[in-house]
């Protein structure tokens, strides 16, 4: 680490750091521990551990359905978001044009608009359009709210890239499309893939907006979990959550391999 004139960590710092890390990690660790309990209520697994609450998920069809809905929703939304974000990122990174800043602001706006407001807006919109309960409609709005994530990572990849390779391809006889497909796309693929994974995670995790528009047929896992926890916290909620934690960690490893986790988390270019 480069010294920034901040000195080094003393005992006080290390104590603070330990407590801080504990504060961050504790609730997640607790969920994982509780999920292994063999009791019928929330408790630590120290007096008897089991996998019974994992098996119990299989007997909760509303959670299983919600899981698959979330998976398909995430896949569809992330794919659609990447499909629209990649050309937009090329426009923003490669051209200077009137309205460029406005375009950027528009595409990043879902980060600023409270998701409750989006939920309300989509609820109204769907009911006006008669789209209530449509999986496709839900996927479209999920795509919309994850576009900023796909855009940011793609943009980061393109901006870091020297334009000469594309120009060279053009002058060697490649059309715009060939130059994109054979030169630019392969070179920005890690960023695009990272943006896709991050978009998938964001779509999979989204609850605040979705809770407004979800119908029994389009209830996602976080929404199902939300409703269940709002009623009671039983060990099944813990085992489902534990799976989500582990799954996210798996995706984080992939993200780290593909683009570097620091790029995703810190938004580094």
């Amino acid at each position: 680490m480069k010294d920034r004139g901040l000195g080094s960590n003393g005992v006080g710092s290390l104590i603070f750091h330990t407590l801080f890390t504990l504060f961050i990690v504790a609730p997640l660790a607790v969920i994982i521990l509780v999920s292994f309990s063999d009791k019928g209520y929330i408790s630590m697994p120290f007096e008897g551990a089991s996998l019974r609450w994992y098996w119990a998920i299989l007997d909760a069809p509303e959670l299983m359905n919600a899981f698959w809905i979330s998976i398909w929703l995430g896949l569809g939304a992330a794919t659609l978001a990447s499909l629209v974000a990649v050309p937009a990122a090329i426009a923003i990174a490669r051209y200077r044009f009137a309205g460029r800043d406005g375009l950027m602001a528009l595409l990043l706006s879902p980060l600023m608009i409270p998701h409750v407001v989006l939920g309300v807006a989509f609820l109204r919109f769907f009911s006006v359009m008669g789209w209530t309960g449509s999986f496709l409609a839900l996927m479209l709005v999920h795509a919309l709210i994850v576009v900023p994530f796909a855009l940011r990572l793609t943009l980061g990849a393109i901006i870091g890239l020297n334009r000469d390779a594309e120009l060279a391809a053009r002058s060697l006889g490649a059309s715009r499309w060939i130059a994109f497909r054979r030169i630019l796309l392969p070179l920005i693929l890690p960023g695009v893939a990272g943006g896709w994974v991050l978009s998938f995670i964001q779509s999979f995790d989204e609850v605040t907006m979705t809770v407004f528009v979800a119908t029994p047929g389009t209830t996602t896992l976080p929404v199902a979990l939300y409703h269940r926890v709002a009623m009671l916290t039983d060990p099944v909620t813990a085992s489902v959550s534990a799976i989500m934690i582990v799954g996210t960690m798996g995706l984080m490893v992939i993200l780290d391999r593909v683009v570097g986790i620091d790029k995703v988390l810190l938004g580094k270019k």
Binding site: N162, D164, A165, L167, A168, A169, R170, S171, L172, G173, A174, S175, I183
Partner: peptide, 17 residues
Amino acid sequence: DPDKRDMGVVFQSYALF
């Protein structure tokens, strides 16, 4: 368009793929 010109460009950065 550049792809119709039959010109060979060597860049300062070489621009290898």
